[in-house]
């Protein structure tokens, strides 16, 4: 038995477009233990969604996975054939997408969509499957599952549809669930319900979860660990609580500060990160964040910082990390 459920090493995914090659994911490393919830956060263009799709080998041309290894239960997924991956998707690893309307087939009842998953990946008889579907729908909080089983997706509200999607994702008890912005399309009151539901079910089913989102508040709500991505690289990683309380990478710090607070005194102006995310076609030479960074020095413009251990369990890719114990700015 491998130490980790998932171990991603130096994953690289690029897109070859007319204007040039885009390194959407550029050397990403992370690990995930059984039952652990990892958040991958970042802004648009950070590469967090592409990372999620790459793990499942769901990259279409003009994109391709150009390097790295993805060990899932000790086996490298990137070496598997499409046929083998199809068996793993759904059964071992399942995915929840942002828009429940497009991830459900509008012409099929929700019962038969869950049944499809069960028939494909289990040996249950038709009657057993029926029972399992009812159990699953109850589990995700759909009232009167026996009546709703024959309904079509459009007969459900957005929140209810996302519950159905979660039921499908959990149907065959996968070891890992990758959720890509699962609550972004939902209203806050529904978002809270879905997050709670996912947290409880992941715990109950013992699955691990990778939660991909742009919303640090959502991450702080339910993840154990978090990885922050910027321009295709992980720039900081660590236990969620610790990282949010004391961010080391200036980008993480800037992101956290720019979120308006719900309590405490209001500042007349929000602290903001100046400038904007550079074009992936035209990344700066050194650290991608250097042109926007208030702590950047000559060195940051020249060399690309590697991820390094800054304090127990805390890694960041920065020459001048913030929030260090002695607060020695030049400390390296």
């Amino acid at each position: 038995m491998a130490e980790y459920l998932l171990e991603v090493k130096n994953l690289k995914t690029c897109f070859e477009l007319f204007r040039g090659t885009v390194k959407a994911v550029d050397g990403v490393d992370f690990t995930l233990k059984e039952g652990e919830i990892l958040g991958i956060v970042g802004e648009s263009g950070g590469g967090k969604s592409v990372t999620g799709f790459s793990l499942l080998g769901l990259i279409d041309l003009p994109g391709r996975i150009s390097g790295g290894e993805v060990f899932f239960r000790g086996e490298d997924l990137l070496k598997k054939s499409e046929e083998e991956m199809r068996r793993i998707r759904g059964k071992e690893i399942s995915m929840i997408f942002q828009d429940p309307m497009t991830s459900l087939n509008p012409l099929q009842t929700i019962g038969s969509q869950i049944d499809e998953m069960l028939a494909l990946h289990t040996d249950l008889s038709s009657a057993e499957r029926k029972q399992r579907i009812l159990d699953l729908l109850t589990e995700v909080g759909i009232p009167n599952p026996a009546d709703r089983i024959n309904n079509y997706p459009h007969q459900f509200s957005g929140g209810m549809r996302q519950r159905v999607v979660i039921a499908i994702a959990l149907a065959v008890n996968p070891r890992l669930i990758i959720a890509d912005e699962p609550t972004t399309a939902l209203d806050v009151t529904v978002q809270a319900q879905i997050l709670k539901l996912m947290e409880n079910l992941v715990h109950k089913f013992g699955s691990a979860l990778i939660l991909i989102t742009h919303d640090l508040a959502v991450v702080s709500e339910m993840t154990h660990r978090v990885a922050v991505m910027y321009c295709g690289k992980i720039v900081e990683e660590g236990p969620t609580k610790d990282l949010i309380a004391n961010p080391h990478h200036p980008y993480t710090k800037g992101l956290l500060e720019s979120i308006p607070k719900m309590a405490g005194a209001r500042t007349p102006r929000l602290p903001q990160i100046s400038g904007m995310v550079p074009s992936l076609f035209d990344l700066p030479k050194g650290c991608s964040f250097a042109p926007r960074c208030s702590r950047a020095t000559e060195r940051c413009l020249q060399d690309v910082p590697e991820m390094r251990l800054l304090s127990p369990g805390r890694k960041a890719a920065c020459y001048h990390p913030a929030g260090m114990a002695e607060e020695g700015e030049g400390h390296e």
């Binding site: 806050v188 709670k196 508040a217 607070k261 309590a263």
Partner: peptide
């Protein structure tokens, strides 16, 4: 009250979801 209780923030965890349904 419900909106304020479920608004995701960095500084606290949502204790309970006060609203059900749509």
């Amino acid at each position: 009250q419900a909106l304020l209780a479920v608004a995701p923030t960095l500084d606290r965890k949502i204790a309970a979801v006060p609203l059900s349904g749509d």
